[in-house]
């Protein structure tokens, strides 16, 4: 869980307030917020006194992202982190819309580690699927012409066969 830190703690650490698109406020340590390259740049140029709006990211997503950033700013042993990452991904990938938005937000906030983690999980999820299954999953309209599709299917026939 993203820690929403009390005022007493806030005085000890350098704290920064982030505001999501639906006006939810999150108070986190500066080193946690720094995990995002974009927020780091904002803090560098505008300081941390006033709240930083994260207008493109909704509260539930931001909460999840900050949870990740906080865990990853502690510098724990690699095995612990890997285990934690796996559990984090298992939970997130259950809801595809949430998972997609999580990736989009981490991409937007420039948290490369998290983008990597999600993309690898995503790739594993899609790898064995057929094009039709992917289209259904993401509601993609097949706008290729019959000829184009046939050309791809015949030229790269090997890609469509099971190994």
């Amino acid at each position: 869980m993203a820690t929403i830190i009390t005022k007493e703690q806030q005085e000890k650490e350098k704290m920064v307030t982030l505001v999501s698109s639906d006006s939810e406020k999150f108070v986190v340590e500066q080193k946690v917020a720094e995990k995002s390259h974009v927020i780091k740049m904002v803090m560098n140029c505008c300081g941390i006194e006033s709240p930083i709006p994260v207008r493109r990211v909704k509260g539930d997503i931001l909460k999840s992202i900050l949870e990740y950033c906080e865990k990853h700013s502690k510098g724990e042993a690699q095995e612990v982190m890997e285990k934690w990452d796996k559990e984090y991904m298992d939970k997130a990938e259950k809801d595809l819309v949430f998972f997609h938005d999580l990736m989009l937000a981490s991409h937007f906030l420039h948290i490369q580690e998290l983008v990597d983690l999600i993309a690898v999980t995503f790739a594993g999820m899609l790898k064995m699927k057929s094009p039709e299954e992917i289209r259904q999953k993401f509601n993609i309209n097949n706008d290729l012409t019959k000829e184009q599709e046939e050309h791809i299917m015949t030229t790269f026939g090997w890609a469509f066969q099971p190994i």
Binding site: H107, A119, F122, L126, L144, E149, A159
Partner: peptide, 23 residues
């Protein structure tokens, strides 16, 4: 952008296969 990020992490075979998803 997300599609690109995912494709970069897929094996070649899947990439060829996914050419025929959409334009």
């Amino acid at each position: 952008d997300i599609v690109t990020e995912i494709l970069l992490r897929l094996p070649t075979k899947s990439i060829f296969k996914f050419k025929c998803i959409s334009k």
